[in-house]
Design a protein around this nucleic acid. Structure first.
Lengths: 346, 346
DNA sequence: TGATTTTCCGAAAACGTTTTCGGTTAAACA
DNA sequence: TGTTTAACCGAAAACGTTTTCGGAAAATCA
């Protein structure tokens, strides 16, 4: 069990002091003879010295760690974003600590506290479905912790927020269906209390309005996020003898549920009914017909998050509060293709 | 910027010493008056004291952190396993630090070192596709670090390894196809150099042998892990005018690629050709026809990993070297259902 | 040559804990 | 009553760094 070699060992070896060694190792000190520095560096290399980050953390009160809290791990969206965040932050010398709150507000709070105790230098958070109380997060921010929110945000939190431009792309998505000639379009929304649901609903309405298409509140239906919930919603609609001209679902899984039910009853997609998803997933190219969907670029989202966080860390806490919108891509596939096509939108 | 309250603050407040406070806070000390302990506990509560884990780590030389290194993040398998590992370890008072090696041996090594420097109490690793040099891992183990490998393992590493029973379930999968009446079965393998590929090939052969079905090496085809690679393989086969009776793909994505190509050419599944996947994924129930596949229970895998790791930590390093096999489930769906069915196997 | 500045080094404090060990006081014993 | 034992407390060292600051020696200046 060979011990880890420390700065002390080097000092002893070289008959010098720990402070000299430390300064030689840290480039920012200039009151050190270049020769001594070289001697230290050489010894460190030969002895296989690796600094103990824990001691450094304790001393500096910072950890070179960034905490990431997301509500779930099981869909592909969050893993992809996290992966991209990690890729970028590692280049800057940071380490990423990922925690899942499992859609529970209590564990979210717990995670928040553990990460804070661990002296992370910054926090990247996507809120739980049930997070209403944001006092603690705001308290952390006021204490000077750099925080960036993304995806699932709360407008009252005093931090920069990176979100997809739900309004705009929901508008585009709806517009696409309209341009393909579909009318009597139904919107399957995600749970209403999520901020993004409201944005997508507004985008939906806005497109209808632009083309002066009659609309009633009946055309908006609250569903969940799973395939089953999408299928259920479609079923309830058809059972009431309502046959939509098209369905714009606020999530790919919900859209797939709808497709399943439509196919089960023998409706032809896209000829009789058009279907459109949101948040491009791997499933879109598996289901038949392939699902038209809006892609959210996880790399751009990660880029913006990291940029804002580093800004906030360097300006120590003077973060740009506000929303930063990321745009996407409309991937037109079979489920909505009636005419030749309208151009791919980016 | 209110400072974090420390043990010193409590001591000052109570006109006592830091050692007394520390001992009062840590239940394992008995040379402390119950009354004093209560006073300390009360003060700690009122002042909002939260121990600084970094200081504790430095002092104790352990971190209550467990490092997890996986090769990728983008499929659902690893996130699910990690999620389950985290769930269990948190209950034991540990925190999980996840890092992705992104299928690169160098970053794997880097991660290994960072986690070691951070004094993790244990390591859970799934190897990179290209990891051939295992000296460093073995060195870490010899230094006394508890390590558990899973999924992508290397037999020469001196640690417990949790792996799915690929041989057995590959055998069952093949047997299922045989019992459904399929003959002339082709096996689409994952990259040969992965240990699990070989196991699955052996299982495939073993089932054929059991039913005395003629077999040539031609029936085993090396593919990759993506949909495209599966489709490519199928294409090449059909282009050579070879029409399999059934395809047993060692991965769901590969199977889906095969299905796509078969459908494109008008073959009927499962009537003309049967298809079988491996490593149940969300895609299995989306593709049409629904894909028969072998499910790997991520919860049981996580259970075993955690159990072995905690054992190893407590017996400090006296780990049970060897392979621990986890069984799965055969989910029979449309892509292989010809006859009524044979019973679901568990 | 003497005074001043520059260069370089090292002692020591600090970060927030845990843990050892000696010491004081009170309780138990004879 | 004197002695031994038990109960409790606190000083201090340790974990491995960084950083401040005083001071010695060398270099520069007049």
């Amino acid at each position: 069990m060979e011990k880890h070699v420390t700065i002390k060992d080097i000092a002893k070896e070289l008959n010098t002091s720990v402070s000299t060694v430390s300064k030689a190792l840290n480039e920012k000190y200039f009151d050190i003879n270049p020769e001594t520095r070289q001697r230290v560096l050489k010894a460190a290399r030969e002895m296989g010295y690796r600094p103990n980050p824990i001691a450094r953390k304790l001393q500096q009160g910072r950890s070179y760690n960034i905490g990431v809290i997301v509500p779930e791990f099981l869909d592909t969206f969050f893993p992809e974003v996290i992966f991209n965040i990690q890729k970028r932050l590692i280049k800057e010398g940071y380490q990423v600590v990922v925690m899942s709150s499992d859609e529970s507000f209590e564990t979210e709070l717990e995670n928040l506290k553990t990460l804070e105790d661990n002296m992370v230098d910054g926090l990247i958070i996507s809120l739980t479905r049930e997070t209403k109380n944001i006092d603690y997060i705001n308290k952390i921010i006021d204490r000077g912790m750099p925080v960036v929110l993304f995806n699932r945000v709360n407008p009252s939190i005093r931090s920069p927020k990176v979100i997809f431009d739900d309004f705009k792309w929901s508008h585009f998505a709806t517009e696409h269906l309209i341009l393909q000639g579909y009318r009597n379009i139904y919107h399957f929304s995600l749970p209403y209390h999520l901020a993004m649901s409201q944005k997508r609903i507004q985008g939906f309405k806005s497109a209808l309005k632009k083309y002066r298409i009659p609309f009633t509140e009946e055309h908006i239906i609250e569903t969940g996020i799973s395939i089953e919930e999408g299928q259920e919603a479609m079923k309830r609609l058809l059972d009431r003898d309502i046959v939509p001209g098209a369905v714009f679902a606020a999530g790919d899984k919900v859209a797939i549920g709808a497709i399943k039910e439509l196919k089960r009853r023998g409706y032809k997609i896209p000829d009789q009914i058009g279907v459109m998803g949101f948040t491009e997933s791997a499933l879109a190219e598996i289901i038949e017909p392939n699902l038209t969907s809006v892609n959210q670029p996880t790399d751009k989202i990660a880029d913006k998050i990291v940029e804002l966080l580093l800004d906030s860390i360097n300006d120590n806490g003077k973060a740009k509060i506000g929303e930063f919108l990321i745009g996407g891509t409309l991937n037109v596939r079979e489920s909505s293709r009636v005419m030749a096509s309208d151009p791919k939108r980016t």
